[in-house]
Design a protein around this nucleic acid. Structure first.
Lengths: 182, 182
DNA sequence: AAGGCGAAGGTCAAATAAAGTCAGACCGGA
DNA sequence: TCCGGTCTGACTTTATTTGACCTTCGCCTT
């Protein structure tokens, strides 16, 4: 599964986050590097490529004695995550960026595995088949469009929920009145 | 049987796939080339000519350290989708054609409403934002890729990995690396 | 309170490790 | 011999890994 150090460290951090209360984890960069027997900057690489805001994470850190690196998995109501992804989706996007974003959406249960595959397929290098500045631009637009479609869908779901809640309430009140009537 | 290298490599990969549809193999291009004593690009040739989606395969890959090439054999149930994908997606496709196709797929229960919306969003005129000969071409490719992704979905049941397993693996490798350092 | 020391973490560019592309050489059969 | 499929090698693109140098911060000393 893990094909290289970066993937391994990613999985390790993700596993820590999984068991973490509040979805936050604090590590020492140096220590972690030691654990994996690599250069400390490798940790930054992993953080920069795998735990970005667009993917729904926040990384904070402090230098100096007693320094740390904190990774926060942002709480993920569907609308929020989608909105964040949209916000952070620039006018150009590499395949990897998009894929990692999609993985996060899937992990959070916002999209199904099928939908994830659908989206990833649509954004493939080969699929778009354009030369480079344009490919990344078209990819970004397609990705945004799909995210928007999801957002609309989520909004509708919420609205639907509200309607149902109101309906239930109305029914409850109606029942109550009916009973009081007797 | 095998009249040349390409056929030989084809047979080898096919044997790795083991006849099991829905199966996937992962190899390293360089390694494979080494094994057959040929140029790495020969592997691409075989992949391009023998493992196309028209023949029921999907090929994915990644570059860089820890790179790989994965070949997936699509299962029989995917046939129908593939047939349609190839049948209805010429090398260019108007928005109208695509939309009609999507509606039909939805009506027939092949895709969900959400998936339909997702696909339609990805194929919009505005979304693609290209001038005309290219827009229809990219749309066709994206549509085809999405259909093929659906086909592939039928194949793969993704196993969700357990945190403990990951942690164990991580620790093993970390130990290994740390020891190698000494 | 000021300044210095050492312990964090950050940045960036170069080195390394894959895979992809493409033009052209090669080869075997009509 | 001519053509189409095969094969290669030089060059490109992408991802990862490392190392040298920079910045920030707490603490200690004066």
């Amino acid at each position: 599964m893990a094909r290289n150090l970066a993937d391994l460290i990613e999985e390790y951090l993700e596993s820590l986050l999984g068991g973490a209360p509040g979805g936050a984890v604090e590590v020492q960069r140096g220590e972690l590097a030691e654990k994996f027997g690599c250069a400390p900057s490798q940790i930054n690489y992993v953080l920069d490529t795998r735990f970005t805001y667009a993917q729904g994470y926040l990384v904070e850190s402090r230098r100096g004695s007693g320094g740390y690196v904190r990774v926060v998995k942002l709480p993920a109501p569907a609308r929020e995550l989608i909105r964040r992804a949209l916000e952070h989706t620039a006018d150009a996007m590499s395949q990897m960026q998009a894929e990692r974003c999609i993985v996060r959406l899937h992990r959070e249960g916002i999209i199904t595995a099928r939908e994830a595959r659908l989206m990833a397929a649509a954004l493939g290098r080969e699929t778009l088949g354009l030369a480079l500045p344009w490919r990344d631009q078209v990819r970004a637009r397609v990705f945004r469009a799909m995210l928007l479609a999801l957002a609309r869908d989520a909004a509708e779901a919420v609205a639907q929920e509200r309607v149902e809640a109101v309906t239930r309430e109305v029914e409850a009140v109606a029942r109550e009145r009916a009973e009081g009537e007797e």
